[in-house]
Structures are given as C-alpha cells and as structure tokens.
Write a protein that binds this DNA or RNA. Sequence first.
DNA 1: GGGCTGTACTG
DNA 2: CAGTAC
DNA 3: GCCC
Length: 594
Amino acid sequence: MTPPEYAAKVLTKFQPLLDRTPPRKLFLKDKNIFYIGGDLKFASKTTRDKMDFVRKKGGTVVPVYDPSIVTHIVTDTTPIPTLKALALKSLTEIPDHIPTVLWSWITSGNRGKLEFEWMHAAFSSRIDADSSKRSSKGKEAQFPRQVAGTVSGGVTNSSVIDDDHHPQTPSSSLHPSSAAPPFSSAANPPQRTRHASQQCNGPEGDPLAEYYALAAADQESAESNDSSDGEMPMDEVVKQSRRGFTCDQRNTDNGHCLNQGIIDKLQELMELHKEKLSDHDRWRVFSYSKTIRALRNHPVQIKSYEQARAIKGVGDKTARKIEEIIQTGELRRIDWEKTPDVESIKNFKGIYDVGPHTAYQWYNAGCRTLDDVKARKGGITLTPTQKIGVEYYDDINSRMPRSEAEQIFNKIKPIALEIDPMLFIEIMGSFRRGKADCGDIDILITRPTHDGKTHAGVIRSLLTELHVRQIITEDLATPDNFDGLEATYRGLCRLDFRSRRRRIDILAVPYESRGAALLYYTGDDIFNRAIRYKAGSMGYSLNQRGLFTAVARDPNDRRKKLTKGYVIASETEEEIFKILNVPWQEPHERVRAV
DNA sequence: GGGCTGTACTG
DNA sequence: CAGTAC
DNA sequence: GCCC
C-alpha cells in the first residue's frame, strides 16, 4: 500500500475512539498534516503507525499535498525525497505558512503542548516558516477533525538537520529539537495569543497548563488598556518611549551584516576591556556591547563619523573609532589594550568563582598560566569552589548540545515528580529560549497550592536523591534554607558516568512568584537588565519575585530601598510585560546578547 | 558627577 | 563586608 | 563607554 492510500484509509479509522476522547487531548486538532516517511511507494509499519498517531491525536492526515489544505509538512527524510513526495522542485516553493517540521514536533505535543514549529524545523532554510502566518480564513475546513489515544512516538532521522552550529554533536543524534533559533522573528502579539492557545491543551497533569491559557487570555483582553492609569504624567511617558529600552525591541537580524568589519574590530576591543580590572572598563564593555548590538540591527552601511554618531548609544569616542575603522580598516586602540596580562587574566577568570579581583591577585603573585595556578605558584590559595572550577575547567567552559540538556532534565524530572507529582518543574535559561546549545541547565521548581500543600522540603529531598544517583556530582553553592519555598542551588551534574560535567542550577520559588521567576530565569541576561532598568525608570522595581510599586528609594543612594513596596504583578510573565509596556516576546525572542 | 538590575551564596 | 555568579 |  502506498502512503497516500494508507493516509486516505486513516481518515476513516479511529472515529469511535475520537468521539470519546476529551477534546483537550487532541492536540493535533485543526492540523492538516502531510507526512513523508521516506519511501514513496510503500507505507512502512513506522509510517502507518505515525499516520495512526496523528489521527488519534485529532489531526488529519492529508493524502495529497495541496498547499491550500495542508497546514504542516512533517518529514522524516532529507530534502530530495521530501520534494519528490511534494512534487516540487525547490523548498522555496512551499508557502511560508506551511512549516516543514520533523516528527519530533508531533511528539512534543505529548509533553502537554506542541512546541514552536521552528524548534523542530526539518530544514534550516525554512526555519522561519510559521503556521501562524496563515491568513485566518479559508483553511482546514475540508477535512473532518476529531479524536485520540496513545501511540509511541517515532524516532526521527536527524541527518536532515543543519547542525553546523554545534559540530561536537554527531549527526547521529536522535534529538532533532536542537535546531538553531530563527534568524528573524516575525511574531507579534495577536499571533502570539493564537500560538499560546494552540499550545495549551496540556494533560491535567501539568499544573501550569491552565496558567498558560489564562495568561494568554489575559493578554488578549488587555490589549486595548492603556498601561498608564493616571499614575504618571503624560510627558514623562512620552519621554520614556523616546529613550528606547533594550527590552522593547527585538533583534531584527542575526545573519551577515553590512557593518561586520566595524563590529569585528569593536568586539575585539571589547574583549580586551573585559579582562581589565577597573569599573571604568566594565562600563566600557557595557557600552560597546550596546553599540555592537545597534550595529547588528542597523540596516545600512555606515560610511561616516556623522552616520555613526546618529546611532543611539554611539558617542564621540566610539564614532571616532568607527571612523578610523572605515578609513584604515584598523583600530590602533586594540594594540594599545593588548597588554601581556590579558591572556592570563582571561584564563584565570575561566575558573568558576574566580573574578577580576582574584585573577589579578594571582597575576600579581606571579601566576601566568593555569599550570601555575595548579602549582599554587606564589603561594596563592584556592577556595573549595575554585578547586572544583580548576578540576573541571574544560567541562565548565564548554557548552552542551540542547539534546543533552534535555536528556539530563528527563532524568531529573521523574525523580522530582516521584517526590511530589504536583510539582511544576521546567528547564529555563537558554534551553527555554530555544538555543541549539546550552551553557548550563536551569531548572525552575514550584507547586500550586490550591490543595493546601507546598513544595517546602522538596529541594532537600531532590538534591539528596540526585546526589545518591550520581546525577549531581559536585556542589558549588547550596541554598541558605533547604526547606523553604525559595531556594537557589548551583552545582555540577552529568548525564552518565562517562559524560562531561555540566553546570546545573536548581531554583525553587513560591507559586505566586512563578511569572516573575519564569521571566528572570529565562533571560537572557541583557534582556533582564534592560527590563529591570525600565521598571526602575518607571518607578517600579522588578526582581525574580515580582514587579513592585511604591518602592521608596534612598535619595542619597538610589540603589538602596527604604521600603519594599508591594507586588503588583508576579503570577504571569504577560502581566509584567503589559504593565511595563514591553511588547510581548516569546522566550526565543528575548535574545539580546551579542 | 552619577547612573548603567537586583539578588543569593561564600568566607 | 567584598567578591562572585546569574 | 554613553547619557542626563
């Protein structure tokens, strides 16, 4: 039997099953899927199982590719056979509203909600294809929709993934979700709400499933509300928007850039300043990184001092440097800053728990290399944490493929749920932002309280258990209070006994703080600083516990708070964005780092 | 001249 | 408290 | 470093 023949047959199968399945479990409802297993002539067992699965989850298996009907192309194979099955000559002929995704996108629905399509893009060239780009009318009406059950998710051929970005990952990896983030993000708030609602058909087991849905609904109903409800004089509001906060605008492009030459030189200079000791240098780095970010997003090639100067964040000094780069192709300041200490300091700071101060102390004691440090040259001493930092120097300074973070998390999550099945436990950080590789694993833990219970004590049990199972191998910093609702843990972990050590952070927060915590632990760093800065400039204060108002600050020292103020938002990310008048951005859109 | 995020852990 | 990390 |  051919795949189209079987697809046609699937449409009539499972109807009784579909009729008695709760609609919330049918996460493929309204999805018209054209599936390509690889063999065009014969529907293999795997292909048949997969088509069955789609149907059982409420999806429609479309027998013939018709772009006006199909909402998603799911492929387990490479471009050539895929195109053959579609009867097309080039991938570019597929409309932008039809994503080409891997099978893993389908099975991601098993975890409570379908993940973003770009996270499972089968071909990097079509990573921006997005079903939310489809005009909302005239679609998906032709086919009946219903149904559900369970079936094993298939294994995916990941050789189709463009894994240029993480060469250390063998192409035999079975984790196709390690696709790179999209180069540009076209999402906007109205589409986002649609995204969110299409993703909230979680199993009852996910305590936050409804929270995501509610948050999305909140946002929708609040769209027209003016955020400045009388608190603030109008002219001040205007002034703020003129200033422009880094958290407000998405990065427009990550690809090649017209000002790459300038960027390279400024970046080189910035890297040198990073290794210097003074506060002055620290702020220079802050400033350069802002300039570089602006240049990355700058649509035209800069050819003059004036043009450079016109960019927000570029002052006289930097504009002069840019001018020099344009005219000579060089930047003399780079050689000037390339002092002999830079290399040593950089290496020392690569040790966990070694910052500028310690690095210079060691340098002044006569250390120049890591071996000098290991030999305690000059009589230097190391803290216990620093010793761990030295021992696992290479591990800690390398990134792991997204799939490894996922695998480690998949070991930890069941252990946590065994302690308390009501826990909310998710990976945050760069993983949540969809990065193809992760520097560490950030795990957020909380628990709904409507049954009168909390997650107090869970952190202690979980850490104990993870130590026993040798998943966590070293502690770097342990919580002040192991039994509270709030806890911060930092350590090293590993997937199995022959894997590298990986940095892991486990954070627990009270349930009411989950939105603020989600926001903070998702980052990225620069986005966080920017949104906190904006909050501060609007008279609020934002931290991982919530957005606070009426915070009285010491007039002599603005950073000192005299009163805590009171929480005005903390349960959802959406309400915090809304109050701060920051356009909604999905985690993968919150990337600001250069 | 002062701000450029705000907090937790370590010794 | 200073230093470090996120 | 930049901005106020």
